Amino acid sequence: LPDQSFVTLATNDSYVKGALVLGSSLQRYRTTRKLTALITPQVSDLMRRVLEKVFDEVILVNVLDSGDSAHLALMKRPELGVTLTKLHCWELTQFSKCVFMDADTMVLSNIDELFEREELSAAPDPGWPDCFNSGVFVYRPSIETYSQLLQFATEKGSFDGADQGLLNTFFSSWATTDMSKHLPFIYNLSSTSVYSYLPAFKAFGASTKVVHFLGSTKPWNYTYDSRTKSIKGNMDDPKIVHPEFLNMWWDTYIADVLPLLEQHGIVKEITTGVNMLSGLVYTLAFSCGFCREAEVTEAVSHVSVSPVLPTESSEKRKERWEQGQADYMGVDSFDNIKKKLDTYLQ
C-alpha cells in the first residue's frame, strides 16, 4: 500500500549496514509496504546512495539545523539528540500508518499484518515488561502528535535518557488499557537476552518474526567467516546467546548488501587487500620450505577482513565536532573517547 511504510533510522555509516540488512530482509519476505529511512548528517554521501537502492525514500534529519522543527527542543535537552531525531518519524504525514523498526532489527518472515494494529502498538521489553521496547512500534504520523512529543520531551525529558523512556511515559496507558496494542514477543525478540523461561523459548522461539540485536555489540561488529558461514569468535561469549540469529544477519548481509557495497566501490579495495595478503602468505610460507601446500591453503582460507566503510579526514571530523555533529553512536562514542584518553594516560 502506497500510504503505509516501514521506517528506520541510521545515525552513521555503521548503522546504515544494519538498515540495509533490515530493508533487504523486508524485501526478501515480499512486503507490500514502502520502505523509508531517516538519516543524520553523519551518514556519508556514498552510503546514502546505497540506501537509495533499497529504500523508497531516504530523508535527511538534522536537529542541529536552526530551521529544524526539533532544534529548540534540542537546545533545552541536548542529551536527547538521537531521540529527537527518531521522533521525526511522526512527521512522515505522507503515510497514514507506519511501523518503526530500529536499524539493529531484522525480519524473519512477512510482518505486514502489523499495519492492522493501532498506535501505539509494541512488544514488552524483556528487562521490564510493563514498558514496551521502542525498537519496533506501530504508529500514525501526525504533526499534532509530533508537536506534543517535542513539548513533552522539553518539559519532562526521558527517564532512561533515550527514546524508550520518553515514549513509554508519553504513551503511559500502554501497560494497562488496551491489550490489542501489546504485540506478541515474537515481533521484537532480543537476540542477547538469556530467557529465564527457557521452555517457552524452546516452544515459541522458532516462530520469531523479528529479531532485535540489543546491546553495545552489533552484528556488523563481528567478523564473518564466509567459508564456514558463521561468525568468528568465542561462542562462549555471554553476548552471543543465539548465534543462529547472528549468522542469519550475516547471511543476508553477504547475499544482499555486500553486492551493493561492491557496486559502489566501497569494499572493492578490501577484497584486493585480502588477495594481496593471501599472496604474501603463500610466498612467505613456501620460501621457508617447511610448509605443505594444503596447510597453507587452509590457513589462507581463514584470512578475512570486515568491510571498512569510508573514513573521513581529521579536518572533516573536527569540522563536525565544531558544528556539534559528533558521531556519538560510532567513532565519537564515549567508549572510543575513553580508550583514546587511556592510551595518553598510560
Rank of each mutant, 00 (worst) to 15 (best):
K229I: 09
I231Q: 03
I231C: 00
K232D: 14
K232G: 14
G233M: 11
G233I: 11
N234I: 09
M235E: 10
D236Y: 10
D236N: 14
D237W: 12
P238D: 12
I240S: 00
V241Y: 07
H242C: 06
P243M: 08
P243D: 03
E244G: 11
E244R: 13
E244Q: 09
F245D: 02
F245T: 02
L246S: 10
N247D: 07
M248K: 15
D251L: 13
T252V: 15
A255G: 08
D256L: 05
D256Q: 02
V257S: 02
L258Q: 07
L258R: 03
L261I: 01
E262D: 02
H264N: 08
H264I: 12
G265E: 04
G265R: 04
I266R: 08
I266F: 03
V267E: 07
V267S: 11
E269T: 07
E269H: 00
E269K: 01
T272M: 03
G273I: 11
G273Y: 06
M276P: 00
M276W: 00
L277A: 05
S278Q: 10
S278P: 04
G279F: 05
G279P: 02
G279L: 01
G279I: 00
L280A: 10
V281D: 00
L284N: 11
L284K: 09
L284A: 07
A285D: 00
A285K: 00
F286S: 09
F286Y: 12
S287C: 11
S287L: 12
F290L: 08
F290P: 01
R292I: 01
A294T: 12
A294G: 10
A294S: 14
E295W: 07
E295R: 12
E295F: 06
E295Q: 14
E295A: 15
E295Y: 04
V296R: 05
V296W: 02
T297L: 10
A299G: 07
A299F: 06
V300K: 11
V300P: 08
S301H: 03
V303Y: 10
V305G: 13
V305N: 14
S306N: 13
P310N: 10
T311E: 11
E312R: 05
E312G: 04
S313E: 07
E315D: 12
